[in-house]
């Protein structure tokens, strides 16, 4: 917080809400999306009004999910997607917010004062047949490898070394064909010795790290980068293996 600066600048009545936005959201209170995020953010913008109203005038990019059908329609939205809701009724927006949170969506915000608020701001509106299909795609984080690139490297080992950082017990159940394995907790102490066992591996080599969810892979990726393996990447996906048969799912 920049409260100290405000005090320095002469403000006499400065308070700090230290728990901040996470505590606010956790208490079940609404947060509101900014104009730019509503216009072109990487999110699913949901119009809770009736399809008839949406067809007459709606916020561009919005997907029509009338509140009455929301319970079923929301299943179309990936759980990791940020969601922005609007309606012409504040009660409806708050009720929908609660539903999304209960369903496990972590990033849900509202358009301030909904459709009316947007109109008052002079926000752009469009009309015509409504969109019901959700087309959200997650944007890769820095260092993340696309699932398709990872799968291509499984087919063609010359593209990258696949590095498995799961535990010995997990690997015993099954592993990806052709992958190299070192448990994450041994990576730091054995990195150079381990990589020396892989023929022809240089620090320029593409290395794709995976685990079961991506959490450990990301940590391993950071260690590899730190140690000069500059083309290391990690897979943020669910990998579940039985023998040499593994499923990779977003």
């Amino acid at each position: 917080m920049s409260a100290g600066q405000a005090v320095q600048a002469g403000y006499k009545n400065v308070k700090v809400y230290l728990d901040g936005e996470p505590a606010w959201s956790k208490a079940g209170y609404a947060t509101y999306a900014g104009y730019g995020f509503i216009c072109q953010g990487n999110n699913v913008l949901v119009d809770l009004r009736s399809a008839e109203k949406a067809a007459k005038a709606r916020i561009p990019r919005s997907v029509s999910m009338p509140f009455a059908d929301l319970e079923y329609a929301m299943e179309e939205i990936p759980i990791k997607a940020p969601v922005v809701l609007f309606s012409d009724s504040n009660e409806e927006m708050l009720a929908a917010l609660k539903m999304f949170k209960e369903e496990g969506y972590k990033k849900v915000a509202l358009v301030e004062d909904g459709y009316h608020g947007w109109k008052r701001l002079g926000g752009k509106l469009i009309k015509g047949p409504v969109v019901t299909e959700v087309s959200w795609k997650r944007i890769l984080a820095p260092g993340e490898v696309k699932i398709s690139d990872f799968e291509a490297a499984l087919e063609d080992p010359s593209k990258a070394v696949i590095l498995d950082v799961r535990t010995n017990e997990e690997v015993a159940v099954g592993k990806l064909k052709g992958s190299k394995h070192i448990p994450l907790d041994q990576l730091c102490s054995r990195m150079d010795e381990f990589f020396a066992t892989i023929d022809g591996l240089t620090k320029e080599q593409n290395i794709y790290v995976h685990c079961t969810t991506g959490a450990r892979a990301e940590m391993a990726y950071k260690e590899l980068i730190k140690n000069g393996y500059k083309n290391a990447k990690f897979l943020m996906a669910e990998v579940s293996c039985e023998l040499n048969d593994c499923d990779i799912e977003e």
Partner: peptide, 24 residues
């Protein structure tokens, strides 16, 4: 950007301000 945006704060130094961020 606080320094550049100090002008966004109200002129009256007695006005109540509440700051928050991403947690403690």
């Amino acid at each position: 950007e606080m320094q550049e945006l100090l002008g966004l704060l109200p002129k009256n130094p007695n006005k109540s301000l509440v700051f928050y961020c991403g947690g403690p």
